[in-house]
Amino acid sequence: MSKADLPYRPCAGVMLVNRAGQVFVGQRLDSTLEAWQMPQGGIDPGEDALTAAVRELGEEAGVDPGHVELIAEAPGDFTYDLPPELIGKAWKGKWRGQTQRWFLFRFLGEDGDIDIRTEHPEFRSWRWIDPEDLPRLIVPFKRALYEDVLAAFRPHLPALGSTETAR
């Protein structure tokens, strides 16, 4: 089966912003690269994208739904293709990439309310970063998608200096 014959995996993504206007990123557990990303994952059959986004936030970052407040939903879906070397390997070869619906949430909790040691951990560490640093931290094949997500949510983000807090 060629890449063109494979469908896109439907997913939801979360940009989680703290009180300082910084964005949560996690370093992927399944990669030896400096692969940082925001929480994201598949939408289950019969599940709507917002529900999936909140579920993924809990599954990947251990964040309780009571610690977040929805700020905005991106105006459309974003899509990326896997690089050729990952086609047929990632996601058991079922998908050519992802089509994602993104949501911006305000984090109402404290750093201690984040626990990446979940039942099925996806991140080895996490930190808060300046939103403008997102594109340079993401794996190259997702960079354009992250630039699009950042552009969609920029009107909702405060102007910031560049500060980050490692965890």
Rank of each mutant, 00 (worst) to 15 (best):
G41H: 05
W126Y: 09
W128I: 06
T163F: 11
L50M: 12
A74R: 02
A4G: 09
G76T: 15
G112R: 08
L137H: 02
H67V: 01
G13D: 05
G62N: 05
E85F: 11
G112I: 08
L6Y: 00
P131L: 07
D77P: 10
L57D: 08
A4L: 08
W95N: 06
P45G: 00
F107M: 03
P140C: 09
K92P: 00
R124K: 13
Q27F: 00
I129L: 08
L70A: 07
G112W: 04
H67A: 08
P84E: 04
L33C: 07
H120E: 11
R124M: 03
V63C: 09
A90G: 02
K89I: 14
F107Q: 04
S125E: 06
E56V: 14
L29C: 02
V63T: 13
F103L: 01
D133Y: 06
A49Y: 01
P83L: 11
H67C: 11
L145S: 09
R117Y: 04
D115Y: 01
G109T: 14
G26L: 02
I138L: 12
G21D: 00
T32N: 11
P84C: 03
G46F: 10
S31E: 00
I43E: 01
R55M: 09
R154C: 04
L157S: 11
T165Y: 01
W102Y: 10
D133T: 14
W91F: 11
G161N: 10
K3Q: 09
P158W: 00
I116G: 04
S31V: 06
G13L: 04
H156Q: 15
Q100W: 00
F141G: 02
K89G: 06
E132F: 12
D44H: 10
L50K: 05
A166V: 14
L160T: 15
A90N: 13
V17W: 00
L160A: 15
P84L: 03
Q22A: 14
A61I: 11
G97K: 05
P39V: 10
P39T: 13
I71T: 14
G161W: 01
